[in-house]
Design a binder for these strands. Structure first.
Lengths: 110, 110
DNA sequence: TTTTTATGTCGTATGTTTGCGTCATTAAAC
DNA sequence: GTTTAATGACGCAAACATACGACATAAAAA
């Protein structure tokens, strides 16, 4: 494949798919949930919370960062991660919109 | 790996991850959107709508069926697919719940 | 200045997903 | 009964994801 097949679809579907993909691993969901509850958000704390190697957790954090769900701020040796509430709101909106869109026509049943 | 690492996480996170995974491809989202709009829902029609081979579309349909998002009903040679509104409602609920859960503590910011 | 600590990057092995051609099956049309 | 049509199952190749040990870097502690 010289180009990506996913490019053949609507941009909005591509974005929802991208976010869904990043939410498609329980470790990443667990990280999000932990970040929502903790105050400190230090990378090391997250690693201790997740039953995977430090390297793997770090990779998952990069993924979450890539789509904009979290931010990392360097503080000396440590890194403070936090949820991006703006991004979260956007995601909540587009997911809700899509799910409502596809279930709005209640009249049609098979 | 002799066991699945994903099993190390909470059952509810596993289910959300599973649903997110099935929503993580634009083709499958396009199928859902199409099914929401069309009245006929014949497999062949879906294939015509999606810019991928018949075989690939069929595979995506099986995935959607596997998590319960759609149902297929055989009608002679053809197969009528339709959205499962019950499943959709469940998914909407658990997604909304999770997204609200992780963004509810607005007070904590980095 | 040396050591320790927190973190990220790289390479790699293994597993999973995507995409498609070919074949098998079964119903309808002829 | 043959042929045609719609679909799913099988098998393969390429791409991508997951997981982790080993190495690199850079701040803090000793």
């Amino acid at each position: 494949m010289t180009y990506k097949k996913t490019d053949l679809f609507d941009k909005d579907l591509q974005r929802i798919a991208e976010v869904a993909k990043v939410m498609s691993h329980p470790a990443r969901l667990a990280i999000l949930r932990y970040l929502a509850n903790c105050k400190t958000c230090i990378s090391g704390d997250i690693t201790n919370e997740i039953p995977l190697s430090r390297t793997t957790v770090s990779q998952h954090l990069q993924e979450l960062k890539r789509v904009g769900l979290i931010h990392g701020e360097i503080d000396g040796l440590k890194v403070n991660y936090c949820l991006c509430n703006t991004c979260l709101d956007d995601i909540k909106k587009s997911f809700t919109l899509f799910l409502n869109e596809i279930s709005i026509s209640e009249s049609i049943k098979c």
